[in-house]
Computed example of a mutant assay.
Amino acid sequence: MHTIALIIGAALAAGDAGGAGVRDLPVGWRVLDGDTVEAPAPAAPDGPLLHWRLRGYDTPEAGGRAKCEAERAAAERATLLLDALIRSAQRVELRTETAQCMWGRPCATLVIDGVPAAQLLIGAGLARPMGPREKRRSWCAP
């Protein structure tokens, strides 16, 4: 396992995003949705950006992949929360794995100020626990 551990004050782009304790994302990072981030590989921080599937949880699908408006709205909230958690953190760790997750994406565990992102998003009601071989469940009412 490799880890990108960012002490945010040292690893972020210069400047404040406008609010107290709110910063820019780490250089090269982008939150794609509630359970996927784009970031460089730990072994090649200057290399290509990868889409990391975050382990341990599942969030609603966004955009055209959403099966209903409630799922689309929940996906937006999950994405915004993950982005805000990373921006306000003092330490962000992307603990990467050599195995690939579903859909061929690389896997990682995201830890924000010592707490797994899975725990934070599940606790906020915007994610569900999900093991490596579990099938996704619908976010839409039957």
Rank of each mutant, 00 (worst) to 15 (best):
C68N: 02
L12P: 05
E69Y: 13
G21D: 07
R72P: 10
Y57F: 12
L126T: 02
E69N: 15
A141R: 09
I112R: 09
R105A: 08
G18W: 06
A43I: 14
S88N: 13
G114H: 07
E97C: 04
P48L: 14
D33W: 01
A127Q: 07
A41F: 00
A78S: 13
P48M: 14
A127E: 02
L49C: 09
G15A: 08
V22W: 12
W139H: 04
R55P: 09
V111Y: 03
S138V: 07
L12K: 13
C101F: 01
I86E: 02
A41T: 05
R91K: 15
P45V: 00
R55N: 13
G123W: 00
D113A: 09
A74E: 01
P40C: 06
P45A: 00
A41I: 03
A74R: 06
A39N: 02
A13I: 15
I112Y: 10
G63M: 09
R95Y: 11
A75R: 01
V31H: 03
D24K: 13
L32P: 07
R128H: 08
G19E: 15
R23G: 02
I86V: 15
A118S: 10
V37N: 01
A117L: 06
A124Y: 02
G104V: 05
D83V: 05
A124F: 01
